[in-house]
Design a protein around this nucleic acid. Structure first.
Lengths: 318, 318
DNA sequence: TCCCGGCGATATCTCCGGAGTATCGCGGAT
DNA sequence: ATCCGCGATACTCCGGAGATATCGCCGGGA
């Protein structure tokens, strides 16, 4: 059975007249008669009663027409849904990110993306940089925000672009002796209990700190280890010591805390956006569009990567 | 778009390989490639990613396939539903009947019909004989059970068959003086308050009573009028007088009542089953089958009517 | 009673497009 | 460098969808 049979049956039911139904369908009457006859033979039941006063569905025809209507609706919806999905208006976007990304680029980006693409199902997975990378390569994430460029097997299949520079700053309770200072020195850091991020989760940060404080520094080995920046800020606010983290912490001001620079200024790995060079879903393209709009310089770098490292340009046209 | 495109897309998604999908569909690979290409052009979006490792649906393809599956399910269900409706397994049966039919033929028939055709929606409309007839002719009932053959405009388009002979009996409270008697005479009836059916609802009964008791009999004109036999029995049980009704009342024995014959024996109009000679729905045919099984002699009369008065023999084959 | 007109079915022809065959182009593997 | 597997392309062919002409049936009207 073909969709044509359903359309013809519905038209016949609507016009109750072979000639007029055929006219509405843009065909002649004999083909319509034949198609309906074929349909009735295939179904094994008479679907229409041909009377002098008109053509009316039988009980079997009524049951058939109800299903036919739904079937044609589904077929029409299939095209519409596919087109919407192709434009990135529906679908799913699985985003992996380090916790500190929640401080600075994500609130803006997610808010805007949610507004522009309300029907895209966002899956947010907070995870360490190394984890993001492997999951991304395995195809279980669409895009990831990591600290420093991805490393490991399969990274050659990823496109990465830095989306923010960063350096180390300190955070203390506002009742802490250092509160009010514009900056703290390395000497001052060595004299205080420190709160740092876990080396396993974000090794790049700990490496930077080792370079700053000295390898095997007792201040560092005795430091409190937290799994993410929010915990670092929280612990610092409680007076547990001097928290050390990315300057992005400044965008999450919290009552009872004091942020200050660390001297000398210590750069941290860039925040990096990565995704598979191939198999970019329309939802991902929409996400990249939002990134482009949010920070034009990143957009330029993105276009450069996509232009040089292969992968079709922006989806949509075929 | 045709159902063929949906079937091909689903097969391709299932086998993830043009050649094997084509083989499963019983066609060669190039036609499948072309049909998928046509489909993608019509939808306006690429539905499948052709990779070295296989053919996988894109986001648009995934959305499309979900709808396609449902559409094909509806199409398959359309045939099944139509065939079931044609066999009278589903559908609707609108039955008009006089209240007294609930006493005798209907309990058996409805019980059996409900067991044999559980998915047929039964609409039961209690109504007077004259009402049944006109509604039946108007096409708003499928079958009717009336007292005496239908009369009025359009009855020539109906098929009618008697389904039960009847005569007048009396019902009284078990504390009534007549309780215990095998029969009551006309004299005895004239000496007691009577309870009879409304002449407007069932004129045939009242006509029979007039013949028995005498036109303008004071006993009759002073009688209590009830709209249906159940009320007659109930009023008689309360000691309100002598109830008069069809012998079918005997099949609804009720504590505290006494039924007895009326002498002389007075026949009442037959209980008649009627339906439109043409446009018999499968559900109606199923109902007639139940009638045939329930009372073989009625079945024979039925077959005779359908055989002689036109109308195709039992539906089903085409 | 006969004739006419409307409607659906049937017969026949045409032609489009779905399917088959052969081949190409492109990567990946040996 | 060669081979092989896979999808795309080019062409050919034929079945069937559709057009035209006509028939059969029935109902209304003169």
């Amino acid at each position: 059975m073909e969709a044509r049979h359903l359309r013809y049956a519905l038209a016949l039911a609507e016009h109750a007249h072979f000639g007029r139904a055929a006219g509405a369908l843009g065909i002649a009457q004999p083909p319509l008669s034949k198609q309906i006859a074929d349909l009735e033979r295939e179904v094994g039941a008479r679907l229409f009663d041909r009377t002098r006063r008109g053509v009316f569905p039988t009980a079997a025809g009524t049951a058939f027409l109800a299903r036919a209507r739904r079937a044609l609706d589904e077929i029409a919806a299939a095209s519409v849904d596919a087109a919407r999905a192709a434009r990135g208006e529906t679908g799913r976007l699985r985003l992996g990110f380090i916790a500190s990304a929640l401080l600075e680029p994500l609130p803006d980006v997610l808010c805007r993306f949610g507004r522009e693409r309300p029907d895209v199902q966002l899956e947010l997975h907070e995870m360490a940089t190394s984890c993001s990378t492997s999951v991304l390569v395995a195809g279980d994430l669409d895009v990831a925000i990591t600290l420093g460029p991805p490393q490991g097997v399969g990274v050659e299949r990823l496109v990465s672009v830095p989306i923010g520079h960063d350096h180390l700053i300190a955070v203390v309770s506002s009742s802490h002796p250092y509160a009010g200072q514009p900056s703290v020195s390395v000497e001052q850091l060595r004299r205080q209990p420190l709160i740092v991020a876990s080396g396993e989760d974000e090794p790049a940060v700990i490496t930077g700190l080792r370079a700053l404080l000295g390898k095997d520094s007792p201040a560092l080995s005795g430091a409190t280890v937290a799994r993410d920046v929010h915990t670092i800020i929280g612990l610092a606010a409680c007076g547990m010591g001097v928290g050390l983290g990315p300057s992005r912490m400044l965008s999450a001001p919290r009552a009872g805390t004091w942020f200050c620079e660390v001297a000398p200024r210590t750069p941290l790995p860039d925040l990096v956006l990565s995704f598979a060079a191939q198999d970019r879903s329309p939802a991902l393209n929409a996400f990249l569009d939002v990134i482009r709009k949010n920070c034009p310089d990143v957009g330029v770098a993105l276009d450069h990567r996509l232009g040089t490292r292969g992968g079709a340009h922006r989806g949509g046209r075929h």
